[in-house]
Design a binder for these strands. Structure first.
Lengths: 198, 198
DNA sequence: CAAAAAATGGACCAGCAAGTCCAGACTGAG
DNA sequence: CTCAGTCTGGACTTGCTGGTCCATTTTTTG
């Protein structure tokens, strides 16, 4: 995605990405064609290829990055201040609410499958997202330790990795079954595990 | 997938499903065409539509069922006998080994995304798999309780749901990043949580 | 203002992959 | 044996979709 030189160009490019993201969330990547995106964003074929010379894959990758950026943003400010039980629970509620609202379409999951592991960029986007997410969880656990709410024996990095896995899996199961029980169970059990660690 | 009347027909049908499953695991659903499947399984176009009149979607659904059946089978006999710490750890190692070997292709995940939530069958397959899987985990936890290894206060169903979510998420993250750290963390933290419950 | 660069519109192309069709070969029950 | 039902082969059709191309308009720059 080469940066467009002019302000108008950047605006069009952003409009394409935003509209494509909406469309992909609505009907999934498999059913979304370039013509759909063109129509939704009020652009022409040549514009799509002007701003994404490598075609659909490049556009999908840009959408993936767009969606990945949203994931952590949507959890703020709670995710950044996990220093009390109160804040952990607020964050927990927000995660559940966010994904229940998102419904049964996982933008990143489907994009990732479509673009494929082949493209180096796809894997990098997901890996970086996971790294940052886990880091923020770990920081929150250390804050609890610092406040004496959790004992120093806790293996913070491993516990954060497990919690992140639980969230991911909970979301995945919710996408497939339409039921958020597992997501809630993962979050609640994870927090309970922290509380039980002296 | 109407059952074929003759033995020969059933054999061909099974060959198609098995070959298609291999192919899909190797190159993913997005890159696999009916011609690929036809070629791999030594069949003709007319056979594909003879046994799966509704076309590719129906075939993919059959493959999804085939893969779903394998998931729990591959965890036996350990998953069926989770009545001691020893057996839980054996099961844990087997799960890690199974998914590390599978590599970075998730047959069910990609099939599910392709066939889509639209088809009622797809959701049913995944939901049933999750239900059975969770039930077996819960049974294992109750066995630990019965043996006095875990206290009666444990909320078995919720903990089993959380563990299942952790496994799913760990696998998902491994698919995306190629790293099994999260899967191991989810399993180990989950078991540790059981051990800590008096 | 003029020229260059960027942005836009939309017709057109080519290839691919799902699905159709019919002729012909097996098979098995009576 | 025979004949109806089943299975198989493969050519053909058809619609769609990503991608190309060039003319035209708009914007920037000197």
């Amino acid at each position: 995605m080469p940066d467009a030189p002019t302000a108008k160009g950047r605006a069009t490019q952003a409009r394409i990405v935003k509209g494509a993201a909406e469309l992909l969330r609505e009907q999934g990547v498999a059913l979304t064609t370039l013509d759909d995106i063109r129509s939704r964003t009020g652009t022409s074929k040549s514009q799509l290829f002007h701003y994404f010379p490598d075609g659909k894959d490049e556009l999908l990758l840009a959408v993936a990055q767009f969606e990945a950026d949203r994931v952590l943003e949507d959890q703020q400010p709670h995710l950044g201040r996990l220093d009390s039980w109160e804040s952990w629970h607020q964050w927990r509620d927000m995660v559940v609410e966010r994904y229940e609202r998102q419904g049964d379409h996982c933008p990143l999951g489907s994009l990732f499958l479509q673009v494929g592991r082949s493209r180096p960029g796809a894997r990098a986007i997901v890996t970086e997202l996971m790294r940052q997410w886990q880091w923020q969880l770990a920081r929150g656990m250390r804050a609890l330790q610092a406040n004496g709410l959790v004992g120093p024996a806790l293996d913070v990095d491993r516990t954060a990795a497990a919690l992140l896995a639980g969230i991911q899996g909970g979301v995945t199961i919710m996408m497939a079954t339409g039921d958020s029980t597992h997501l809630k169970a993962a979050l609640d059990t994870g927090i309970e595990h922290l509380r039980a660690t002296t």
